[in-house]
Amino acid sequence: MISEEEIAAYLADDLRCIGCGAQIQTTEPDEIGYTPMSALKKGFENEEILCKRCFRLRHYNEIQPVNLTDDDFRRLLDQISGTDSLVVYVMDVFDFSGSLIPGLHRFVGDNPILLVGNKIDVLPRSLRRSKIKDWMRQQANIAGLRPDEIALTSGKNGDDVPALLDLIERYRKGRDVYVVGVTNVGKSTLINQIIKEVTGERQDVITTSRFPGTTLDRIEIPLDEQSAIIDTPGIIHQDQMAHYLTAKDLKYVSPQKELKPRTYQLNAGQTIFAGALARFDYMQGDKGGFTAYFENNLMLHRTKLEKADAFYQQHAGELLAPPEADHLDDLPPLQRHEFKTTQKTDIVIDGLGWLTVPANAIVAAWAPKGVSVLTRKAMI
C-alpha cells in the first residue's frame, strides 16, 4: 500500500486528474483538483487518479459546480460565438437580475438562445406561467437579449425537464448545446436532472458512466455520435448577497419552498428590516401596501424611520439576523440607495429578494456595500 509520504512526493511532482487535467490537491475542499487523502490512496491502488468532482461524475453521473473568473468565462463565451450551436442560458427566476451575464448577446454570435427560468417552484403558484415568460422576455430584451424561446423549470424536482429536452431537440437541429449561467442559479442541479431523464428513458442516446471532461472549462454529455450537451462552469457574480454569507446564513436567503408574500400597510416614515441584511425606508407617499418577497424564514421587522438607525445598532446580529452576531463584522456596511417610483415597482436586492412598492413613492433601500440594488416593473 502506498504511504502518505510517497503520495506527497507525487503531489509535489504535479500529479494530475485523469478526468479533467486539474492538479490534484488534498488541502482545499472548495478548490479545483481537490480529493481527500483517503480517496487518493484508493486511486493509486485502482490506478485511477481522479479529483472529487470527476469521481462523482464518473461513478455517480453527478456534476459538481466549478467556478471560473470573469475573464476565464468570457474566453469560453468567445469560443461559443465561433461555433454553430444552441445556447441554453439558465437563469434564476427568483434572482433574475443577479443571474444576468453582462454582454452575453455579444458573445454568442448568431447562435439561437433558449432562455431557461430555473427554480420556478419557489414563485407563488398563483402567478401564471405565461405572465412569468412575458416578464422574462421583457427583462431579457432590456438586457439586449432576443431569446428564440423561453422555458420554465425546476432543477430541484425535475418535473419540467422532459418538456425542456423537447425544446432543446427542436432548436438544436443536430448541433451541440452549450449550457451557460452564473453561479447559484441551480445549473448543475438542472444538468443532473437532464442526465437522469436521458439515461432513464433513452439508454441508447448517452453513455451511462463516462462523460468526457476535456478540460475544466467544459463537460460534454453525448446526445448522439455527432453532438453533445456541453456544461460550462458558472461565472461568479461578486455583487450577489450569497458571497457575503456563511453556509448557515444562506438558508435564510435562498428559497427552497414556495414563497409566501408578506404585505404591510405602510405610512411614510416607516421602515422594514430584512434581518440585518437589508432595510427599506418609506420616505414619502400616501399610505399603501408594500409586499415583501424573501425566503420564508427570513424575519422581517417594521419600525419607525426615526428610530431605525438606533434599532439596527441595538439589535443587529440578534433580533435582526442573519447574520448572527459572530459574523456581523464580516458583512460590509449597509449602503443607501434612493428610488422614486412612477408605477408599481420591485426594488430588488440581488440574491436576497425584493419589495414591491406602489406608484408615486420615494423609498430608500439599504444593502451591504457591493451588493446590487435596482428597480424593475413589478413582476407580480
Score class of each variant (00 low, 15 high):
Trp135His: 13
Trp135Thr: 11
Trp135Phe: 14
Met136Thr: 00
Met136Tyr: 02
Met136Leu: 15
Met136Val: 08
Arg137Pro: 00
Arg137Ile: 11
Gln138Asn: 13
Gln138Glu: 14
Gln138Cys: 10
Gln138Thr: 15
Gln139Lys: 11
Gln139Leu: 06
Gln139Cys: 01
Gln139Ile: 05
Ala140Met: 02
Asn141Asp: 08
Asn141Pro: 00
Asn141Gly: 01
Ile142Asn: 04
Ile142Arg: 10
Ala143Asn: 08
Ala143Leu: 00
Ala143Ser: 12
Ala143Pro: 03
Ala143Tyr: 02
Gly144Phe: 05
Gly144His: 04
Gly144Arg: 04
Gly144Tyr: 01
Gly144Thr: 04
Gly144Ala: 08
Leu145Ser: 06
Leu145Asp: 03
Leu145Asn: 04
Leu145Glu: 06
Leu145Tyr: 01
Pro147Ser: 09
Pro147Met: 07
Pro147Val: 03
Asp148Met: 12
Asp148Lys: 14
Glu149Phe: 12
Glu149Pro: 01
Glu149Thr: 05
Glu149Arg: 14
Glu149Val: 07
Ile150Leu: 03
Ala151Tyr: 01
Ala151Leu: 06
Ala151Gly: 00
Ala151Arg: 06
Leu152Trp: 07
Leu152Glu: 06
Leu152Ser: 05
Thr153Lys: 03
Thr153Glu: 08
Thr153Val: 12
Thr153Pro: 06
Thr153Gln: 06
Ser154Lys: 05
Gly155His: 03
Gly155Thr: 10
Lys156Ser: 07
Lys156His: 12
Asn157Met: 09
Asn157Gly: 06
Asn157Tyr: 15
Asn157Ala: 07
Asn157Ser: 12
Asn157Trp: 13
Gly158Gln: 08
Gly158Met: 07
Gly158Phe: 03
Gly158Pro: 05
Asp159Ile: 13
Asp159Glu: 15
Asp159Phe: 11
Asp160Tyr: 11
Asp160Lys: 14
Asp160Ala: 15
Asp160Asn: 15
Asp160Gly: 14
Val161Met: 02
Pro162Gln: 07
Pro162His: 07
Pro162Met: 10
Pro162Thr: 08
Pro162Asn: 09
Ala163Glu: 15
Ala163Pro: 00
Ala163Asn: 14
Leu164Lys: 03
Leu164Met: 11
Leu164Thr: 08
Leu164Ala: 09
Leu164Gly: 06
Leu165Cys: 15
Leu165Trp: 13
Asp166Leu: 08
Asp166Thr: 11
Asp166Pro: 00
Asp166Ser: 10
Asp166Arg: 12
Leu167Ser: 13
Leu167Lys: 13
Leu167Arg: 13
Ile168Arg: 01
Ile168Pro: 01
Ile168Ser: 02
Ile168Asn: 01
Glu169Phe: 10
Glu169Arg: 14
Arg170Phe: 06
Arg170Pro: 00
Arg170Met: 10
Arg170Ala: 12
Tyr171Gln: 08
Tyr171Gly: 03
Arg172Thr: 09
Arg172Trp: 04
Arg172Glu: 03
Arg172Ile: 04
Arg172Lys: 11
Lys173Ile: 02
Lys173Glu: 15
Lys173Ala: 12
Gly174Thr: 08
Gly174Arg: 09
Gly174Tyr: 07
Arg175Gly: 04
Arg175Phe: 06
Arg175Leu: 05
Arg175Glu: 05
Asp176Met: 05
Asp176Pro: 02
Asp176Glu: 11
Asp176Leu: 03
Asp176Asn: 15
Asp176Gln: 07
Val177Glu: 05
Tyr178Trp: 15
Tyr178Glu: 06
Val179Ile: 15
Val179Ala: 01
Val179Asn: 07
Val179Ser: 05
Val180Thr: 09
Val180Tyr: 01
Val180Lys: 00
Gly181Trp: 03
Gly181Ser: 11
Gly181Gln: 03
Gly181Lys: 05
